[in-house]
Amino acid sequence: MYGGLARFVVKPGKLDEFLEVVRWSSRIARDEEPGTLRLDVWQVDGEPDIVYGYECYTDRDAFEAHIKNAAVRRFGEVMDDLVEGWTMVIPFTNSTASNADLQ
């Protein structure tokens, strides 16, 4: 498994538009990327305009395929309009353990 966790600071008034783009990109990944296992987004009470995004792939090759798709390119194009900044909470890396590995 290969994945990472990012924290996005969304510009005031842009949260709905940001989430719309994320949901659209997630649907494309679900429908067209068999190696993309998860694209999850969380919001935490008390952290307005903060969005956490978790991505998980079968391996690094699946991640590389994901970042080349049109949806990710589109996401990159709108980031400056929607996001004040972002950081990697957990940099992309191979997992040490996962319940998905216990099959």
Results as ranks from 00 to 15, higher is better:
Lys11Pro: 07
Lys11Glu: 05
Pro12Cys: 05
Pro12Glu: 14
Gly13Met: 11
Gly13Trp: 06
Gly13Gln: 09
Gly13Ser: 12
Lys14Glu: 06
Lys14Trp: 04
Leu15Asp: 04
Leu15Cys: 09
Leu15Ile: 06
Leu15Glu: 11
Leu15Ala: 09
Asp16Trp: 13
Glu17Tyr: 09
Phe18Lys: 01
Phe18His: 00
Leu19Ile: 00
Leu19Phe: 00
Glu20Lys: 12
Glu20Ala: 13
Val21Ala: 14
Val21Pro: 06
Val21Cys: 12
Val22Thr: 07
Val22Ala: 11
Arg23Glu: 14
Arg23Thr: 12
Trp24Pro: 04
Trp24Ala: 08
Trp24Tyr: 08
Trp24Lys: 08
Trp24Leu: 06
Ser26Tyr: 07
Ser26Asp: 13
Ile28Ser: 10
Ala29Asn: 11
Ala29Arg: 10
Ala29Gly: 09
Arg30Asn: 06
Asp31Lys: 12
Asp31Glu: 13
Asp31Trp: 02
Asp31Thr: 04
Glu32Phe: 08
Glu33Gln: 12
Glu33Ala: 10
Pro34Ala: 03
Pro34Trp: 07
Pro34Asn: 02
Pro34Asp: 03
Pro34Glu: 00
Gly35Cys: 10
Gly35Arg: 15
Thr36Ala: 13
Thr36Glu: 08
Thr36Arg: 14
Thr36Cys: 15
Thr36Gly: 05
Leu37Asn: 03
Leu37Ser: 00
Leu37Trp: 03
Arg38Trp: 10
Arg38Asp: 09
Leu39Val: 13
Leu39Tyr: 04
Leu39Ala: 13
Leu39Thr: 01
Leu39Arg: 10
Val41Ala: 15
Val41Gln: 07
Val41Lys: 02
Val41Trp: 15
Val41Ile: 14
Trp42Asn: 13
Trp42Tyr: 15
Gln43Asn: 01
Gln43Ala: 01
Gln43Pro: 12
Gln43Leu: 06
Gln43Thr: 04
Val44Gly: 00
Val44Phe: 09
Val44Asn: 00
Val44Tyr: 13
Asp45Arg: 04
Asp45His: 04
Gly46Met: 03
Gly46Ala: 02
Gly46Lys: 06
Gly46Phe: 00
Gly46Val: 00
Glu47Tyr: 15
Pro48Ala: 10
Pro48Asn: 03
Asp49Ala: 06
Asp49Leu: 06
Ile50Phe: 05
Ile50Gln: 07
Val51Ala: 01
Val51Glu: 02
Tyr52His: 01
Tyr52Arg: 01
Tyr52Ile: 02
Glu55Ser: 08
Glu55Met: 01
Cys56Thr: 11
Tyr57Met: 00
Tyr57Thr: 00
Tyr57Ile: 00
Thr58Val: 14
Arg60Cys: 09
Asp61Trp: 11
Asp61Met: 14
Asp61His: 13
Ala62Glu: 07
Ala62Lys: 13
Ala62Trp: 14
Ala62His: 13
Ala62Gly: 10
Ala62Gln: 14
Ala62Arg: 11
Phe63Cys: 01
Phe63Asn: 03
Phe63Lys: 03
Phe63Ala: 02
Glu64Met: 04
Glu64Phe: 01
Ala65Leu: 11
His66Asn: 10
Lys68Arg: 11
Lys68His: 09
Asn69Cys: 15
Asn69Tyr: 11
Ala70Val: 08
Ala70Met: 08
Ala70Pro: 05
Ala70Lys: 07
Ala71Lys: 09
Ala71Pro: 07
Arg73Met: 13
Arg73Gln: 04
Arg74Asn: 13
Arg74Phe: 12
Phe75Met: 12
Phe75Gly: 10
Phe75Cys: 08
